[in-house]
Design a protein around this nucleic acid. Structure first.
Lengths: 344, 344
DNA sequence: TTGTAGGCGTTATCAA
DNA sequence: TTGATAACGCCTACAA
């Protein structure tokens, strides 16, 4: 294997080859204006020939660039893997990150593990320079933690009280739209199905939903998805009361409901209309295809990166709202069944 | 919040607090045996109180630990996002990586971008210490590239000629099993549906498939999935000839076929049996549920990490085969239709 | 068992 | 416009 790692090429080698001092090379590669165009060109050529690039670790040590974003996802492999949202998030993160030259450091921790420890570690090691917080819960200890550490951080989701900046997808008119759509189809009672109850955005959404329903004369209920139940779909459907339509926080759950409902005797959309609060390709491979809200995940990712970049530079950054949630009407919503009318 | 970022705490601070020299601290944190248990405890206590951890960048500069694995995925956001395999891969990677204290640096590049450039950059910057190669194609330029760079690398998928180590999921008996299963159901002609034609494992699989079919008196065909077609499913089904069963490389494609086939007049599994070569939760939310091969993705990920770790330490590592692909019979396979029997 | 000194590759400061 | 020189925070000989 011909000893490939003879010696790593350094800035000194480039300097020697260009007949200048290391600092000149540094200047050129950091866009400082005090180098003549001629020598700059010579330096760049030398670097190219040697295929040299500034060592990231060294830059970090000497205070320079080389930033990296930490994303810690506290989910089991299973619940991570079955949420297409994360694919979109990751994909959306990489592009703006690449533009900045930042790395993305990703890890999963099991929900029962001590994730705070990990934040401490990554920050302490200076492995990352900022955190993106997802799945933020009410009273999430990470909020105080990043504050205490002094780590730049932003959360994706509903804003929470406190100084941690947030990037929110503007739900402004979404519930109104959804309820409007359903009311137009004759539904008089709608249940909102929440996935993980503790999440910070749940309460805000509940309120919006209730408000939207109220002003349209639609009855609003809320039910929690119980994944621990023997047959979660049957369990949920059994708790629906008079509702003829549901709005489901999680797309995965919506897909499961739509797929499984017929097998427990409920036809979608004939007997039950279903709207998913998130959208991905999954919505189109279940039958009936899911009527869903397409959220601007990629844009949120970009906004979050931009926000964190500002924070890292020491500027302070205001909370961001990204708008663009739009209802994609597909096949899982239909006129309300008449036969439910008499039901108490 | 009491000025948190006054000054980053360093090894010197810890040393001072413990009343020792910096090197003593270093020794303790690098597991060297030349420190008495008493002072080691004192040092650890001091580090704890100061909440200090060795700066990763500094360790890297001074040749120490702090490794990081590079994963560059050359896919569009869309094709990345709709492949559950990557979720499993990422999830599977994080655990062994965390055990080693390695970071995972992830990025997506568009297929038309110069991905080699990125490998060069990451390696040159020493942003990563090893690469994991996925979606390896015949004659993949990255193989020569990592060799030239002297970068430790391993590929996930079929072994390729050359010195780059590979982690392969042993397909040994998988095709035999699949064909056996289908032959047992009366199928006499089976088509293998390939996703991306250039991938390195395609040819190997083709051969295995043909062989397995031959020895069981089943006719073997191969057809490529044409995602550019107006209606890819209809297009594919139109090219199936006598085949009453298909084995589909990509789970996503299989899901799409199963979902869409009835809409173009083909009932699954009555008229067509479908087997997916990969498995994830998606297999269970389409109807009929997909009969699929469950591949040990997490184990492969772990094997790849272990292999790369050895490579980085300078040991050389043999190609690995991870076994455990097993057929999960669900609802998308059924007895072959009779009406096809008369056909020669 | 502990501490000192030098080096890792880069950036920043300041003099030439 | 350039180039010494001193950090940056840690690790590893080697000396005490």
């Amino acid at each position: 294997m011909s000893e490939p790692s003879t010696k790593r090429v350094t800035i000194a080698a480039v300097a020697r080859r260009a007949g200048v001092s290391p600092s000149a090379v540094s200047h050129v590669f950091n866009g400082r204006p005090n180098v003549s165009e001629a020598t700059a060109a010579r330096i760049r050529a030398a670097a190219d020939e040697l295929n040299w690039r500034p060592n990231l670790a060294s830059r970090k040590v000497s205070g320079g660039g080389g930033r990296s974003l930490g994303l810690v996802i506290a989910r089991s492999r299973g619940t991570f893997g079955r949420d297409p949202f994360f694919m979109r998030l990751l994909a959306g993160l990489t592009e703006p990150l690449a533009e900045l030259g930042w790395s993305l450091s990703l890890t999963l921790v099991r929900p029962d593990e001590d994730e705070e420890q990990l934040y401490r570690q990554w920050w302490g090691e200076q492995r990352v320079d900022a955190f993106l917080l997802v799945d933020v819960r009410d009273d999430d200890p990470r909020l105080a933690l990043v504050e205490q550490l002094g780590a730049p951080a932003a959360l994706l989701g509903a804003p929470v009280p406190g100084p941690v900046a947030s990037v929110t997808v503007g739900d402004g008119t979404a519930f109104a739209e959804a309820v409007e759509h359903l009311a137009g189809l004759g539904h008089r009672s709608v249940t909102r199905v929440t996935d993980a109850p503790g999440l910070a955005h749940t309460r805000a959404r509940d309120e919006r939903f209730r408000e939207a329903a109220l002003t349209r004369g639609v009855r609003a209920e809320v039910a929690a998805w119980d994944k621990a139940a023997d047959d979660p779909v049957a369990d949920l459907l059994g708790r629906l009361g008079e509702s003829t339509a549901i709005i489901v926080d999680s797309e995965t759950v919506a897909a499961e409901i739509v797929a499984h409902a017929p097998e427990v005797g409920v036809r979608v959309p004939d007997q039950l209309s279903v709207i998913a609060w998130e959208d991905s390709w999954v919505s189109t491979i279940v039958r009936p295809r899911l009527t869903a809200f397409d959220a601007p995940v990629e844009e949120s990712a970009r906004a979050a990166v931009a926000l964190l970049e500002r924070l890292v530079r020491g500027e302070d950054a205001a909370p961001q709202t990204v708008s663009g949630r739009r209802l994609l009407v597909r096949e899982s919503t239909a006129p309300a069944p008449n036969n439910r009318e008499e039901s108490p």
